[in-house]
Computed example of a mutant assay.
Amino acid sequence: MNSKWQAQMQIWCGAVMIFGLVLIGGAFEVTSAGVSGLFAILAGPGPITWDPAFRFSLALMGAVTLGWGATVLAVVRGTSEVPDAQSLALWRGITVALLLWYIVDSGLSIATGFWRNVLPNTVLIGWYLLLAARHPARARQGQVAQV
């Protein structure tokens, strides 16, 4: 597998995992500065209530996000050892899952008054799609020009 592509995908996964850690930080007051800053930027429709249920939700979403990034990282590393057809099938599945996340997360962000969240979502999915389009197996099959 193309080591440049693999390194770029690992950076993408690292960014997702770091975001998960920021969300996890919201579980406790002492570690919530990052997520407080995030909510200040997102500027939702009202004040945030830092109650136990909200902190639990942040921690849970952070854990899911951290796991999501780690899962894609495992696929990045693992697909270098499988035939192109299998690798592309895995990446198609990951792409469908990420598009589903984008549609649901962005739609709910707009519906709940946190429309600004669509901007980083769009950056993240766009970055991923650019990398996915440059998958080395696709280039070998002539499906995309190698960049």
Rank of each mutant, 00 (worst) to 15 (best):
L124K: 00
S106K: 06
V82M: 04
G126C: 03
A7H: 11
G107M: 10
I103A: 15
I11W: 11
N117P: 02
V22Q: 06
D84K: 00
L129V: 02
A7W: 08
P45N: 12
A139S: 13
G44L: 06
L60M: 14
A74E: 06
D51N: 15
F28Q: 13
Q6E: 14
I125T: 01
V144G: 00
H135A: 03
A53E: 12
L99N: 13
V35T: 04
P120W: 05
F56K: 07
Q143H: 08
C13N: 12
D51E: 14
L23D: 03
F56V: 08
M17P: 06
I41L: 15
W68N: 09
I94A: 12
V75C: 05
V144N: 03
P136I: 03
W68D: 08
F39W: 13
Y102H: 13
V22L: 12
S32D: 15
L124M: 12
A7L: 08
V82W: 01
G46Q: 15
L88W: 06
L23C: 10
R140C: 02
P52C: 09
L73Q: 12
Q143N: 00
P136V: 03
V76W: 00
F19M: 12
A139C: 14
W50H: 08
I103R: 09
A137N: 04
V64W: 10
R77Y: 00
L119T: 04
E81P: 01
L129P: 02
Q141L: 14
V16P: 05
S106D: 11
F28R: 12
L38G: 04
L60V: 11
E81C: 01
A89Q: 05
P52N: 11
I94M: 14
Y102T: 09
Q86S: 04
V30S: 13
A70S: 10
M9K: 03
T31S: 15
S109C: 14
A132R: 02
V72D: 02
V16Y: 09
G25Y: 07
G20W: 03
L100D: 11
V144Y: 06
D51F: 10
G78E: 06
V64H: 09
G107P: 08
A15R: 05
A70R: 08
N117K: 00
G34C: 05
H135E: 12
G46K: 14
L42D: 08
V22F: 04
K4N: 10
S109E: 09
C13D: 11
V30C: 04
M1E: 05
V96R: 11
M17E: 15
S3M: 07
V72I: 15
L66A: 11
V72H: 02
G34K: 05
G26T: 05
A53F: 12
L21C: 14
A133Q: 09
W68I: 01
Q8H: 11
W50M: 09
V72P: 01
A43R: 14
L58G: 01
G34N: 07
Y128H: 03
L130I: 06
